[in-house]
Amino acid sequence: MNRNVTLLWNGLIPENPIFRLALSLCPAVAVTTSVKNGLYLGIAVIFVQVLSSCTVSIFKSLIHPRIRIPAYVIVIALWVSVIDMVLSAYDPHTYEKIELFIKLIVVFAIIISRLELFASKEPLVPSFFDGLGMGIGFTFGLCLVSAIREFFGLGQIFGQDIVDLKFLVMILPAGGFFVIGFVMATFNWIEYKITGKIPASGGGH
């Protein structure tokens, strides 16, 4: 049980997919104009990550090592298509705002890298928690960026007016880049204060 908690925590902060691993950055800029969109996409990613991790973990002995990458891609595409269809059917209002990005979850590097690095070697339960942790970490990253952008850009949180603030650049694409840059730097700074070392930040893909 202890290990599972560690796996969850690991995805949330120490190996946060967005700020630490610098993976799957596209949606972090694109959909984070409002917390609602960020949360929504994050939940979709959690589902895809957990379901794919579990599928790969269960069937890992049947997947020939030479075709493992195409096999992973098909598994991810399968679950993305399922989520895509379910969301478009049951919540068309929110879906239409982030439609393209739901479909693009297929190419989010974070998912396939977790399958390759973790789920293909470990049993079902740890794979589940690893997938869940990464998914939650991703959602957390999206929510943080979108909360900052929505607050400063529109003066709202969750679509509710808080203050009369309109700093338009935050809502524009440029704002997304600025916010992620600064949040990443803040993460580095915190780690520097705790460990006394500047981490060699990301750049992975």
Binding site: I63, A71, L78, V86, A89
Partner: peptide, 29 residues
């Protein structure tokens, strides 16, 4: 041959699952 068969099997299984989900959700959509 083994690789081809297993890849085909994966694809067919995925297509079948998708077909089933599509049939279920299309009306609701």
């Amino acid at each position: 041959i083994k690789i081809t068969i297993s890849l085909t099997a994966i694809c067919v299984a995925a297509a079948l699952i998708l077909g089933a989900v599509f049939a279920k959700t299309e009306d609701v959509r």
